[in-house]
Design a protein around this nucleic acid. Structure first.
Ligand code: DCP
Length: 623
DNA sequence: AGTAAAACCTAA
DNA sequence: TAAGTTAGGTTTTACT
């Protein structure tokens, strides 16, 4: 069967091979079996006749733990692993093929644990049928996924724009793209790129400003002004590049006039484009123009699937452009230049400050406006403005006007844009807010949440659902009593064990190898337990581990009360519902409801009658 | 009991 | 060519 499959591959002669986790599992497994069975021709999978496909397992011992990865050579064919694509392009709580297919396409397969495969094969027609269906589905779903997310189209575009092979887009980072573009532009301009020796890394340099938020619940419309592609546009406007930098000792070497040199807010010198146009600005112009095209197509597209594809393309190009800046600040990278990255962020800090001041000075009673505009928050390249307008139209009009006026203060292509109005707007903290997002005056586009629990993957879905529902009730329905009643009912349900366990599953990523952790973590402890129970399915670095917190003696730390949700179901283990109330639900609820409902919230939510009936449990773990 | 540090994830 | 960047909130563990 294996030989026939390999022959099938050779006859079909595909450019691209896909599957789910093929690089880490399927190919190594198949090649291993073929070797064990002494199959002569199986490993001839590539397009070069005499090159045999082998698995190279590379283990690098670094100061910061082990780095393990497998490399499989299949000449002339791209290994386009959908597991890698999905992890890169979608932010999900779980990346099992089953969950991914379900979330993205609404399709599921029956899971068959590997331990029963032999039994199914040795059973009867029915069990073999079950196995066959499972295998077919396993092969079919990755293809359907590829067809659905259309990542190949975007990746081919990205490969063309940045000049890297397709496979690099899956197996490598942003740096290769920047280097490839630099090489391309350097060659045609007649430069060599120096080889950079890795030196000692200094401290992080200073980044962007986050304005102190004036927290609270705003019933007035809040206009948002935002510099488009801030860092790339700074680099283009001021011609920041390796090739335009004047080191302090070079400033006087070239007989340059004052008007031919830019001094950045961080005190670095660069020549203007009139003297010599930088490479980085050229690269950025190309990336931004590709992004602009993608955005234009997105605007005209009506099909929701294609919209998502184009949005993905636009986003990937934006990250690549921002990574050109990031590359210059990457001290463990191929060509760091902190003069560039430090100048970029310094310009950014100056710009957000100036923007805030201009808005507040110009849109004031003193200048003839109805009220004093107030910048209530801003992050890096945006300001949230309370023009104190009572309606959307006025807020939008003032926002557009301000964006246009302030843009004129900056060099092209720097541009401040009016993006949207939040109405109402709940500002909880830096990087934490929610609001109804309006781009037009008739209906809100969506409820937008930043940083709060509804967009985070490290809490249980009960918290997500409750916070989401509360926000809807408050921001959309404006029903404060209904919100309180809903929260009380939910807490009562939780305490009486009426919440489904699937809503209580928390997932966290395994970010280090065991042994590199200095503090015990619930999901890490569970991962170790799972590895013991089922070594064949041991969680690996980068996997997300789902867990629930079960009952234990008082003061038992969470990492000792952690258990596999399936194990809990199978063994009827009691869940620690008060953990979910006290450690998962209560604080997020107070943060959301506090600004809207006032100080009374805590007593209403956490100490009302609805908290009195609790289901008693008997079995316990821990001390 | 109070606080520093670790860990995670997100905004930009 | 191994690895874009910094800022920041929140929860949990470890330590005093
Ligand atoms: N992954 C990211 C995102 C952002 N930034 C930096 C560079 C950006 O210029 C700035 C502002 O980020 P935004 O998310 O607001 O995005 P842009 O301004 O780049 O693009 P847009 O045109 O969508 O506003 O923050 C970054 O370095 N890396």
């Amino acid at each position: 069967m294996l030989e026939a499959w390999a022959e099938f591959v050779r006859q079909l002669d595909p450019d691209i091979l896909t599957g789910y986790n093929i690089n880490n599992f399927d190919f190594p497994y198949l090649l291993d079996r073929a070797k064990y069975l002494k199959l002569k021709n199986f490993a001839r999978l590539g397009r070069i006749k005499d090159i045999i496909t082998v698995v190279k397992e590379i283990i690098q011992q670094t100061k910061f733990g082990k780095r393990k990865f497998k490399n499989i050579n299949i000449e002339g064919r791209v290994q386009y692993d959908m597991h890698v694509v999905i992890k890169r392009d979608f932010k999900l709580r779980s990346y099992t093929l089953n969950n991914v297919s379900n979330e993205i396409m609404g399709e599921q397969k029956e899971d068959v644990h590997y331990s029963i495969i032999t039994d199914l094969q040795n059973g009867d027609d029915q069990t073999r049928r079950r196995l066959a269906v499972y295998c077919l589905k396993d092969a079919e779903l990755p293809l359907k996924l590829l067809d659905h997310v259309k990542s190949l189209t975007n990746d081919i575009e990205m490969a063309r724009v940045t000049g890297v092979p397709l496979s690099s887009l899956l197996n490598k980072g942003e740096q290769v793209k920047v280097v490839a573009q630099l090489l391309r532009h350097a060659q045609s301009a007649g430069y060599f790129i120096p080889v950079h020796e890795y030196g000692p890394t200094t401290d992080q340099y200073e980044g962007a400003t986050v304005l102190e938020p004036k927290t609270g619940y705003y019933k007035d419309p809040i206009a948002t002004l935002d510099f488009s592609s801030l860092y790339p546009s700074i680099m283009i406007a001021h011609n920041l590049c390796y090739t335009t930098l004047l080191k302090p000792n070079e400033v006087n070497n070239f007989n340059l006039g004052k008007d031919e040199i830019t001094i950045t807010p961080s005190g670095n010198h660069f020549v203007k484009a009139s003297v010599r146009k930088g490479l980085l600005p050229q690269i950025l112009e190309q990336l931004l123009s590709a992004r602009k095209k993608a955005k234009a197509m997105l605007k005209d597209e009506t099909d929701s699937v294609y919209k998502a594809v184009l949005n993905g393309r636009q986003l990937a190009l934006k990250i690549s452009a921002n990574s050109v800046y990031g590359f210059t600040g990457a001290q463990v990278g191929k060509l760091p230049c902190l003069e560039i990255s430090g100048s970029v962020t310094a310009y950014g800090r100056e710009m957000i400050e100036l923007t805030r001041n201009l808005v507040e000075q110009e849109y004031s009673i003193e200048k003839g406006y109805a009220s004093n505009a107030e910048v209530i928050y801003g992050d890096t390249d945006s300001v949230m403005v309370n023009f104190k307008a009572k309606d959307l139209e006025t807020s939008m009009k003032l926002g557009k006007e301000a964006a246009e006026a302030i843009s004129k203060k900056f060099i092209s292509p720097i541009k401040l844009e009016f993006e949207k109005v939040y109405w109402p707007y709940l500002l909880i903290n830096k990087k934490r807010y929610a609001g109804l997002y309006y781009t037009g005056t008739d209906k809100y586009d969506k409820m937008d949440c930043k940083g709060i629990e509804t967009v985070r993957r490290d809490n249980c879905t009960l918290v997500v659902d409750v916070i989401n529902t509360c926000l809807r009730k408050l921001l959309i329905e404006k029903d404060e009593n209904g919100t309180v009643a809903y929260v009380q009912q939910t807490i009562s349900d939780l305490l009486q064990n009426n919440v489904d366990i699937s809503q209580l599953v928390i997932t966290k990523e395994l970010t280090k190898n065991d042994g590199d952790y200095t503090a015990k973590q619930a999901h890490v402890e569970l991962a170790k337990k799972l590895a013991k129970r089922d070594p064949g399915n041991a969680p690996k670095l980068g996997d997300r581990i789902p867990y629930v917190i079960i009952c234990g003696a008082k003061n038992t730390p969470a990492f000792q009360k952690v258990e596999d949700p399936i194990y809990v179901l199978e063994n009827n283990i009691p869940i620690d519902v008060s953990y979910y109330l006290e450690n998962q639900l209560s604080k997020p609820l107070l943060r959301i409801l506090g600004p809207v409902l006032g100080d009374k919230v805590e007593s209403i939510i956490l100490r009302g009658e609805h908290t009195l009936t609790r289901t008693k449990v008997t079995s316990k773990v821990g001390a």
